[in-house]
Computed example of a mutant assay.
Amino acid sequence: NMVLASIRSEARLPVQMAPLIFISTVVTHLCGGSAGREGAALQLGGSIGSMFGRLFRMQERDKHVMILCGMSAAFSAIFRTPIAAPVFAMEVVCVGAMHYPALVPSTIASLTASWLAGKLGIPLAKFSVQEIPPLQIVPSLKILLLGVLCAGVSVLFCILLHQTEKQLHSRVQNPYLRILAASGMIWILFLLVRNQDYLGIGTDVIGRALAGDAVWYAFLMKILFTAVTLGGGFKGGEIVPSFFIGAVFGCCFGQIAGISPSFCASVGMVALFCGVTNCPLASLMIGIELFGAGGAPYYFMAIAISYLLSGYYGLYGEQSFLYSKFTGAVVNHKTRK
């Protein structure tokens, strides 16, 4: 939220945010917190971009471009999606108004970061999807239904995430006691489920879902674990948890609807990502970069309907909506919590 706010105003990002968010995210993952890495990466990249903008005494609008370059580079290095990364950075700040002046420098930053990450041994994020159906009416209707359901799950995720944080902050005002209380709640949840699927990033579960194997309640448990982790004060990202939730939900939908669970897991990932971030173009590009272009028409169907029906809910409170999703009228609406 600080990063998004700084792009729209002259608010400064503190230099110490970069090392602090890095250390706190490592601690979250070390202790088994249910969170991702990309939130820290976006803050890290935005903070470094802001620092360079001040160091070279750039004008305010150029500092904003530098922040977007840092966000693009960090997102690209983490996910190895160099095409989607700059689009996401430009699209997420204000829905309906992309920051096109940052297109060229953000693209260069993203490609450079992805190349360097490859040299450092971080592999490309590629997944194989089984049984992509031909573009026909029946599978299209099923995928549209999956997009509708993903919109509902994305709204549920956003509401529980924000409300858990609100309730924990109001009931336990001391931040140290609050994070201890959240730790105790996570421990109790872990003892109840008796497995580690919902701790940490959860890439193993995502991989199993993309292979067609998931249990129906897994998406609900991940929502609960992530809401307690981030609401209690642990640091990390929400995007990888949204991939987890979308993948297992889509896989279970495919098992019920009689369409490839593996393919539905990939559709669920991008549709739910769009529902929580309100970034349809970045969602489509992530789908193509992660899974290939074979399922692109289906991805776009699910993304479009999820974007429309998720309303004005989202992960980031500082995200704004310039235009109405339904009428096209100018609304300047803030994210609902």
Score class of each variant (00 low, 15 high):
327 T>K: 06
306 S>Y: 13
267 V>C: 14
247 A>M: 02
328 G>D: 06
317 G>T: 04
305 I>Y: 01
242 S>C: 12
315 L>K: 11
239 I>T: 07
314 G>W: 04
316 Y>G: 00
289 E>N: 04
301 M>Y: 08
241 P>W: 06
291 F>L: 01
250 G>K: 04
330 V>Q: 15
330 V>T: 12
324 S>G: 10
309 L>M: 14
295 G>W: 07
240 V>F: 14
251 C>M: 13
239 I>A: 13
267 V>K: 07
272 L>P: 03
287 G>I: 00
311 G>L: 00
325 K>A: 02
262 S>R: 01
319 Q>E: 03
264 C>T: 00
324 S>K: 10
247 A>K: 04
311 G>D: 05
295 G>R: 05
320 S>G: 10
266 S>M: 01
258 G>E: 12
309 L>I: 03
288 I>H: 06
252 C>L: 02
284 L>Y: 02
254 G>Q: 13
282 A>L: 10
259 I>Q: 11
307 Y>D: 05
300 F>V: 00
280 P>W: 11
320 S>Y: 03
329 A>D: 15
288 I>Q: 08
306 S>T: 11
291 F>W: 03
275 G>V: 05
256 I>N: 11
300 F>G: 02
328 G>C: 09
326 F>I: 08
246 G>A: 09
325 K>E: 06
267 V>N: 09
258 G>A: 13
261 P>W: 05
306 S>C: 06
303 I>D: 05
286 I>E: 01
243 F>M: 15
270 V>P: 04
293 A>Q: 13
304 A>D: 03
301 M>W: 02
265 A>Y: 12
314 G>M: 09
309 L>C: 09
277 T>Y: 09
268 G>Y: 12
289 E>V: 12
322 L>V: 07
276 V>Q: 10
320 S>N: 06
252 C>D: 09
247 A>Y: 07
277 T>A: 15
249 F>E: 07
284 L>F: 14
264 C>K: 01
302 A>N: 00
273 F>Q: 08
294 G>Q: 11
304 A>Y: 11
292 G>Q: 10
297 P>H: 02
300 F>P: 03
249 F>T: 05
314 G>N: 09
258 G>K: 08
312 Y>M: 07
279 C>Q: 00
268 G>D: 08
247 A>P: 00
326 F>L: 14
255 Q>V: 09
247 A>F: 09
311 G>T: 03
267 V>D: 08
301 M>G: 05
292 G>A: 13
292 G>I: 08
255 Q>H: 11
243 F>N: 03
312 Y>P: 07
298 Y>G: 00
278 N>F: 05
245 I>N: 12
326 F>P: 10
302 A>Y: 00
271 A>H: 01
324 S>A: 13
282 A>V: 15
327 T>H: 13
326 F>C: 08
244 F>D: 01
322 L>R: 13
319 Q>D: 07
